[in-house]
Amino acid sequence: MRESFTETDFRIYWSKYAQKLGDSGQKIAESLLLMNEPRLEGTQVFVTFPNEGSKLDFEKEIPALLGYLRGHLKNHDIDIEVAVNENAKPKRYITPQDKYNRLVEINPLLDKLRRTFDLELD
């Protein structure tokens, strides 16, 4: 199977998988997926961690993550490459506005929904 997919689709399923982990009580694995932005080049996913321990913990999750992504995106060419950059700072979303902005990056229709129902961020 080799269907094409968009970066938005990829990011949506990456976030859904992280949420699935969090919902099942695997908070550390969830935070590893959300720690830094994965970089997508074609079907190759590049993930960088600030230390070797995070990298090792993440690598344990790769088989299940690949199965999830390959199945939902219908593309078995997807692969993940993991690296360590001790100078990398994890991206954190502190305020509700930061979190909202990140979600709009993943799915731009969220902003249309907010405007349609005249919702505010608190």
Rank of each mutant, 00 (worst) to 15 (best):
K55N: 03
A64G: 10
I106V: 14
R70Y: 01
Y68N: 12
E86Y: 05
D111H: 11
P108E: 02
K99Q: 08
K27T: 04
D111C: 02
K99S: 03
D118H: 05
I28S: 14
D9K: 14
S31K: 14
L69T: 01
Q97D: 09
S54A: 03
E52M: 00
F58Q: 03
P50Q: 10
L113W: 10
K55W: 00
I62E: 07
G22L: 13
K27C: 02
R70C: 08
T48F: 01
I94A: 14
L56M: 11
G25R: 05
I78H: 00
E120Q: 03
I62A: 02
I78F: 11
E86I: 15
L66R: 09
T95V: 03
V47N: 07
Y68R: 00
I62C: 14
N75T: 10
E3I: 00
K91L: 06
L34A: 07
K20P: 05
L40V: 06
E30P: 12
V84T: 08
A83S: 10
K112S: 13
A83N: 13
T6C: 04
L103N: 14
F117T: 05
E120D: 10
D118G: 12
A64Q: 07
I28R: 15
G42L: 04
L34K: 06
G67N: 03
R70N: 07
G71S: 06
L69R: 10
I94N: 09
E3P: 08
E3A: 09
R102D: 04
V47E: 09
G53R: 14
E59H: 13
I62D: 01
R114P: 00
R11I: 15
G53E: 04
E59G: 12
G25W: 06
F46M: 02
R70P: 13
L40C: 08
K91D: 13
G22N: 14
D122C: 01
K16T: 02
M1K: 06
L66C: 03
F117P: 00
P108N: 04
G42N: 06
E105Q: 15
T6L: 09
F117Y: 15
E52K: 00
A64K: 12
P96A: 07
E59L: 13
F58R: 02
P50F: 15
H76G: 14
P96R: 02
D9H: 12
K74I: 02
K16H: 01
R39C: 02
Q44T: 12
Q97S: 11
F117W: 06
S54K: 11
N36G: 08
M1N: 08
L32G: 00
N107R: 09
T8S: 08
Q26R: 15
R115N: 08
D23H: 09
V104C: 05
K20R: 06
L73S: 09
K99M: 09
R11N: 11
I28N: 02
E61P: 11
L109H: 04
K74F: 00
Q26S: 13
P108H: 05
